[in-house]
C-alpha cells in the first residue's frame, strides 16, 4: 500500500474513530466526574434551563450577541462552516458512497461550499490577526491558541486549494495538495478530543451546568 492509499484508507478511519470515540469518552468522563464533584448541579438539574440556554447560544439570540453583534455573527459563521463543510461537501460524500458503507446524503451546492471554505480561511486569519493586535487578546493569548487556529484553518485552506487546483497542477505542493488536505483534516479530528477544541462537546456540559446554577435562582441564561 503506498502512502497515499494509507492516508486515504486506514488513517482516515483512525482519525474518524478517534474523533468519535474521543468526544463520547470526553462526555462520559465529564458526566461521571460531575456526578461526584458537582452534586448540586445534579440535584437541581432541569432540562428547562438547559434547553433554553442551548436555544439562546446555538442561535444568535443571547446577551453577548446583543452586545457585539458583528463579531458574534462572524465567529458564528466560522463555526457553522467548520461543522457543515466536512459533513456536506460533495467530495466527502462521494468518498462515503465509494466506501464499504455505500452511504450517501444531500450535499452543499458547490458554489456555496466554495464560499464557505473561503469564509473559514479568512475569518480564521482575521481571528489570528485580531489576537496579535487587540491588547486584551494579546494578554490572554498563548502560543497554543495561535497554533490551534492555524491547524483549524489548514484543512479548509488545503481543501480549497485541492478542489480548485489554485496552485496549478505541477510542483510538489500542487501535486500533493489532496494529501495535505487529508493529513491536516485527520490531525484536526484527532486533536478535537484532546485540546481546547474539545469545547465542541464540552460546551454543552459547561453551559448546561451554569444554566442550571443560575436557573435554580430563576434566571434563564
Amino acid at each position: 500500500m503506498d502512502f497515499y492509499a494509507f492516508v486515504e484508507g486506514p488513517l482516515t478511519w483512525v482519525a474518524i474513530l478517534t474523533f468519535l470515540i474521543g468526544i463520547v469518552v470526553r462526555g462520559i468522563l465529564y458526566y461521571n466526574a460531575s456526578k461526584k464533584t458537582d452534586k448540586m448541579i445534579h440535584k437541581y438539574f432541569s432540562w428547562k434551563w438547559v434547553f433554553s440556554t442551548y436555544a439562546k447560544w446555538l442561535l444568535p439570540n443571547n446577551v453577548t450577541f446583543k452586545k457585539q453583534p458583528l463579531y458574534y455573527l462572524t465567529v458564528y459563521l466560522f463555526h457553522i462552516c467548520i461543522v457543515m463543510l466536512p459533513v456536506f461537501a460533495y467530495q466527502h460524500i462521494v468518498m462515503w458512497e465509494m466506501s464499504r458503507f455505500g452511504w450517501s446524503w444531500i450535499s452543499l451546492p458547490a458554489g456555496l461550499a466554495k464560499w464557505m471554505t473561503l469564509a473559514v480561511v479568512f475569518i480564521g486569519l482575521f481571528l489570528i490577526g485580531r489576537r496579535a493586535i487587540h491588547p486584551d487578546l494579546k494578554l490572554l493569548t498563548k502560543s497554543s491558541d495561535y497554533l490551534l487556529l492555524a491547524l483549524t484553518i489548514l484543512p479548509f485552506l488545503t481543501g480549497y486549494l485541492a478542489a480548485h487546483a489554485t496552485l496549478g497542477t505541477t510542483g510538489f505542493l500542487a501535486e500533493n495538495m489532496q494529501l495535505f488536505h487529508m493529513l491536516s483534516g485527520q490531525l484536526m479530528l484527532i486533536l478535537i478530543p484532546f485540546t481546547k477544541l474539545s469545547h465542541a462537546v464540552l460546551f454543552f456540559f459547561s453551559r448546561g451546568a451554569t444554566a442550571v446554577e443560575f436557573g435554580r435562582r430563576g434566571y434563564s441564561m
Binding site: A33, K36, L137, L140, T141, L202, S206, A209
Partner: peptide
C-alpha cells in the same frame, strides 16, 4: 477542582468576550 472548574480551565478560549 470539580468537573466544571477543570473543564473551564481547559476550554476557556481566551476570547476576551
Amino acid at each position: 477542582l470539580n468537573a466544571r472548574f477543570k473543564t473551564w480551565l481547559k476550554i476557556c478560549a481566551n476570547c476576551a468576550l
